[in-house]
Simulated scan of single mutants.
Amino acid sequence: MNKGPLSGVTILDCTIWQNGPFATVMLSDLGADVIKVEDRATGDPGRGFMDASGPAGVSGYFEAMNRNKRSITLDLKSPEGRAVFHRLAAGVDVVVQNFRLGVAEKLGIAYADLKEGNPRLIYASATGFGPKGPDARVGVFDILGQARSGVLHALREPGAPAEYNNAFGLADQTGGILLAQAVTAALFARERTGEGQEVEVSQLGAMLTLQQMGLTRHLITGYEPAMSRRDAPRNPVFNLYACANDEWIAVGGLQGDRYWPDFCAILGLEALGRDPDYATMQQRTAATRELVRQLDEAFVRFTRTDLLARFTEAGIPCSPVNSYADVVSDPQVVANGYIEELDHPHLGRIREIGMPIRFSATPGGARSSAPELGQDTEMILLEAGYEWDEISALRDKGVL
């Protein structure tokens, strides 16, 4: 039974790809009933994206962004399709869309078109570069959100070309997280005022927020980010090192002076830890390259498991540098239930990333795998008050 904190909230989800769908999948994990409105011919393009050639043609990309949801196909370009959408929107709590600026207005499903029929409606929009300015109508994907916000520059190694890692879609995911937060805040406000409203989050704005510390420093002091080089960190006890068998470890001794003697002793470098030439952070920073060279030679003499145990016992913050294969079997991931199991119609039992938020009284989480295209169309329309003959007529006209 769905007992999440948003149980009873119904959302019409008109989003595609990743930014918008991630917001609505988060809301679905919180218990909301998310109705995914898809083009009757093509559906969400994410259905065929990336690894759709995997087992049974299932796209892990689409699954991650659309679990728990129900799918209805609808031709929003037809008058009949718009009429169906308006009827559905009149009975839901939230509409979420990530069309390019102006498309929702052209289709007749913008907030201004819907709010009269549902004054309590929360209308949420995911945009690229924001709703104002010369590039407001530009389509945006993750790489552009990272680039324009300064993230790709900030993560560039000194002297190296900018590179993009698309393993998880940082700008898409961050924008989705903030959009989900905006929706829940708007729902809370509605509980107090009884009124709906329009909310908007852009990828650009979300990525600026993600960098709030660095950008605020820049605004106040002119600070420019510089990615720390592993072979020349400011603090050798706050760095990455390779252990035996090329297994990497991260050490997070931010208070370097506190940890330096024990850190060196564990590595068999007691003399280095007592050397007055390296007693302070300032001294170690000045000699960082030479110190890292000596530390590198020491680390490879130990296994990662051994050093993790020793550092932990000494109270030195540390972590393995996990691969994805390591992550899914990490004892902390397993113990906290961060990975859940679901039944999939083609793959059987599958594992997915669960909801990381814990509620003692209203637990949420993954409930079902992503829907087939249009699999819930009839049920959704019946719930909205349509009769079977009306549904059949809409199908005959190519609306559904």
Results as ranks from 00 to 15, higher is better:
Phe22Ala: 13
Gly348Gln: 08
Met50Gly: 09
Ala250Gly: 11
Arg274Val: 11
Gly205Asn: 06
Leu308His: 05
Ala279Asp: 04
Ala104Pro: 07
Leu101Gln: 14
Gly60Lys: 00
Gly128Pro: 00
Leu308Arg: 11
Val58Glu: 15
Thr42Val: 08
Leu308Glu: 13
Ile266Cys: 06
Gln212Ser: 15
Glu340Ala: 15
Ile16Tyr: 09
Pro363Thr: 02
Tyr164Arg: 05
Pro158Leu: 02
Val328Phe: 02
Leu179Thr: 09
Gly194His: 07
Glu390Ile: 02
Glu116His: 02
Pro79Asn: 11
Pro276Trp: 07
Ala52Pro: 01
Thr209Gly: 07
Gly194Ser: 05
Asn118Phe: 05
Pro317Gly: 10
Pro363Lys: 00
Gly108Ile: 05
Gln173Glu: 07
Thr184Val: 15
Leu88Ile: 03
Pro276Arg: 00
Gln283Glu: 12
Thr127Tyr: 04
Ser323Ile: 10
Arg274Ala: 15
Asn98Phe: 12
Asp246Phe: 00
Ala147Ser: 13
Phe311Gly: 10
Asp277Tyr: 05
Ala361Lys: 13
His344Gly: 06
Leu272Ile: 05
Glu200Ile: 08
Tyr61Asn: 10
Glu297Gln: 12
Glu378Ile: 12
Thr10Ser: 10
Val321Cys: 06
Ser78Asp: 05
Ile143Pro: 06
Cys243Ala: 11
Pro161Phe: 12
Arg47Asn: 10
Ser319Thr: 03
Asp277Ser: 08
Leu267Trp: 10
Ala361Glu: 14
Thr377Asp: 01
Pro236Arg: 00
Asp343Thr: 14
Gly374Arg: 02
Ser228Leu: 01
Ser360Ile: 08
Leu308Ile: 04
Thr288Val: 01
Arg87Gln: 14
Gln282Arg: 15
Phe302Arg: 02
Thr73Tyr: 03
Ser7His: 11
Val140Trp: 12
Ala232Arg: 14
Asp231His: 12
Ile339Asn: 01
Thr127Gly: 00
Thr209Gln: 13
Thr73Leu: 02
Gln181Tyr: 15
Tyr259Asn: 09
Pro79Glu: 12
Val333Gly: 06
Ala32Glu: 05
His153Ile: 09
Ile249Asp: 02
Ser125Leu: 00
Arg234Gln: 15
Tyr164Asn: 03
Glu290Gly: 13
Asp75Val: 05
Ser53Glu: 13
Leu101His: 12
Ile143Gly: 08
Gly46Tyr: 12
Phe129Cys: 04
Arg358Leu: 03
Arg293Met: 05
Ser360Cys: 09
Ser329Ala: 14
Asp246Glu: 08
Pro276Asn: 01
His153Gly: 12
